[in-house]
Design a protein around this nucleic acid. Sequence first.
DNA 1: GATGAATGAGCGTTCATTCAT
DNA 2: GATGAATGAACGCTCATTCAT
Lengths: 191, 191, 191, 191
Amino acid sequence: MTKQVKREDIIRAAMDLIAAQGFHGAPMSMIAEKAGVGVGTIYRYFENRDVLIKSIYKEIEERLVAYLTKKYPSEEPVRICFFHIAKGLVTYFTQHPMDFKYFEQFHYSPFGEAHRRNRIFKSAGQPDIFMELYERGLAQQVIKNLPPTVFFNLAFAPIVWSLRDHILEMVAIDDSLAELLVTSCWDSVKI
Amino acid sequence: MTKQVKREDIIRAAMDLIAAQGFHGAPMSMIAEKAGVGVGTIYRYFENRDVLIKSIYKEIEERLVAYLTKKYPSEEPVRICFFHIAKGLVTYFTQHPMDFKYFEQFHYSPFGEAHRRNRIFKSAGQPDIFMELYERGLAQQVIKNLPPTVFFNLAFAPIVWSLRDHILEMVAIDDSLAELLVTSCWDSVKI
Amino acid sequence: MTKQVKREDIIRAAMDLIAAQGFHGAPMSMIAEKAGVGVGTIYRYFENRDVLIKSIYKEIEERLVAYLTKKYPSEEPVRICFFHIAKGLVTYFTQHPMDFKYFEQFHYSPFGEAHRRNRIFKSAGQPDIFMELYERGLAQQVIKNLPPTVFFNLAFAPIVWSLRDHILEMVAIDDSLAELLVTSCWDSVKI
Amino acid sequence: MTKQVKREDIIRAAMDLIAAQGFHGAPMSMIAEKAGVGVGTIYRYFENRDVLIKSIYKEIEERLVAYLTKKYPSEEPVRICFFHIAKGLVTYFTQHPMDFKYFEQFHYSPFGEAHRRNRIFKSAGQPDIFMELYERGLAQQVIKNLPPTVFFNLAFAPIVWSLRDHILEMVAIDDSLAELLVTSCWDSVKI
DNA sequence: GATGAATGAGCGTTCATTCAT
DNA sequence: GATGAATGAACGCTCATTCAT
C-alpha cells in the first residue's frame, strides 16, 4: 500500500523531471528529492537507473494502449478505426502532456534505441491494432500500397509533431483543428 | 586558412561522433583525438561544448538550406515548389545520413529546446522558402487552410520519419517510393 | 533456546558467506537472507557488523582450542605435545576448511589488527597450551632459545600456509605428508 | 619528468595508506588528497583502482626481486643460496616495512586471489630463483623430498610471519636473531 | 597559437544501520 | 521480539574546462 504510493511518487517525480529537463536534468539524487525519498529508496523499487527509465516508459505505453484499445471499433471500416486511433492519440496526449514529453525524450535517447525496431506505440503483449489496421486497409484496397513503416509515418508523424507543437504552445489544437489534422493524415494514405 | 581547416576538422569529428554515438558517446577528449588536435584547441574555436554543438547544427542547417534553395523554382506553381523541397530533403539526407542523425540527436536534446520555437529547417538570415511556400499556397487556395505549423508537419513529418527508417535500414526508400511518399504528403495538404 | 538457534543461524550464514566470498561479498542483507532472518534481527544479537565479525572469530577460535585441548597429553614430553597440537591443527582445518578461510579473512583485515597483538590461536580465558609448550620446551632445553613469537612462527606458520594451499587445492596434504610437514616444523625448533 | 614525479606521489600515497589502513581505509579521494593531486589525476596514470593496486604490487615485487637477485650466488651450494634469499627477505622488508605491509594486504585480498596460484614473491618474467633453488636442492639431495609448495612454506613462512611481528614491534629481529631464524628454517628443509 | 595534464563537481550505486510497524 | 523498508554517507569513476608550458 504505502509501498505502491512510494513507487508512484518516484515514477511521477522521475517522469516530470525527465519530461521537463531531459535525462541529463534528472539525476537520481534530484529524482529522490522531488519524490521525497532517499536516494537508496529508489533502488528498492528499481534495479537501476535504466530499469527505472524503461519502467516509466512501459507504464506510459500501457496507459496509452489501454486508452486507444478501449472501445476500439474493430468491426467498423478501416477509416473509422483509423480515426479512432488518431483522435485517441490527440486526446490522450493533449490530456497527458508529460506522457508525451517523456515519450519523446525516451524515444530519441540511447534508451529508445532498443525500442526503435519495434513500431512506435506498439505494446508487446497485446494485439497490434496498428498492424491490423494496416493489413486490413491494404486487403480492402482502401489505403495506398505502401510499406507499413511509411504508412505509419504518413498516418501518425504529423499528429505527433503537431502534438509537440501544441504542448509547446506553438499552436492550439482544438477539436476542429484536430479533425482537420486527422482527416489530412487520412487523405495522405487513403486511395 | 589553417584556422578554418582546423575548425572544420573539429566540426567534422564532433559531428560524426555525435551522429554515430550520441552526445554521451562524444566527450571533448574524443572529439579532439578524432580531429587530430589538442583538447584545449577546441576551446579556441568554440567557447564551450554547447557552442560547439550548436555551431555544428547551424552548419548542417546552412548546408541543407543551401541545397534546397539552389535551383529553387520560385516562379513555378506551389505544387512544383513543394515537390522540389520535399524531394530535396529526401535526396540530401539520403546522401548525408550523418547530417540527418546529427539533426535528430540535436533536435531531441536539451540543446534543441531553444530551436524548437523556430521552424525546423528554417535558416535565420535567408528568405524562408518554407514560409513563402505556405503563404503562396494559402493565397492561391491550393492548400488547406491550416496553421503554418500543422501544414509543415503534414508536409514534412512523414518524410523525416521515413528518412530515419531508411537510414536505420528499416525500409528502403528508392526513387519510386520517394515519389509515392512525397505525393502522399502533398495529398494531405492540397485542397 | 530459539534465541540461541537464531544466533547460530546468523553466525553460520555470515561465516560461510565471508569464508567463501570475503567481507565484501557478505553484506548484512545477504547474511540475513541466508540465515533466514530479517536484517534488523541481526542487530538484536550483535551490536553491529564489527561485533558480529569478531564474535564469529571468537567462536571459531573456541571450537579450535577446544579441539586441540581435548585429550591434550599434558603429561607427555614436549615433542609429543607439539605433535598433538600441530597434527590437531592439520586435522581440524582439513575437516573445517570454512573455519580456516574465515580465520584467514579475519586475520588479514582491519578486524584482525586488534588481535594481532595476541598470540594467534590463543584463547583468552583458558590456559594457554601454546605458551605452556614453549616454556616447558625452553626449561627442558629441548627447543632452541628463541623468543616465543619466533618459536611459534617456526612451529606453525608452515603448517598454516600449507593448510591454505591444501584447501586451495594447490597441494594435497595426506597423512604421510602431514607427518613430514609436522616433523619438519619440529626439526626447525628442536635443539 | 613531472609526470613521473606525480605518478610516484600517487603510488607512494596509495601504498602508505593501504599499508597502514588496508584497502578499505584508502579510498581514491583520500589517496588523491594525500598525494596532493586531484582525484581525476589518478585516472590519468592508472586505468582504475584495481590497476593502481596491482601496479603498486608489481612495483614492490620488482624491487624485491631485483634486491634478491642482485649478487645472487647462483654458483654456490644450495645452502648458501637459500641463506642469501632468506636473509635478503629479512633485510629488505626490515628496511621497507611499508612494502611488507602492502604485500600482506594485497595477498590476502580479492586482488591477491589471481596471484595466489603463482608462487608468492615469484616474478613473472624473470628466472625463478625460488624454483631453481628447490629443484637443485632436490637433485642434489640436500633438501627433503617435499612438494615445492610445502618446501617454500617451511622455508619462508616463519620468516614472513616473523617479519610481520618485527614490523608490528612484537619482537625485535636483530642480526643474530635473523641468523637463528634463517638457520632454523634451513633446519626444517635440509636433509 | 596550441597543447594536454590537471582538476573536482557531479554522477550512479551500495550497504550498514535505524525504527515504525 | 522480529521485521524489512527507508535512509544517506560514501564509494569509484567521468569529463567539461582551465592554464602553465
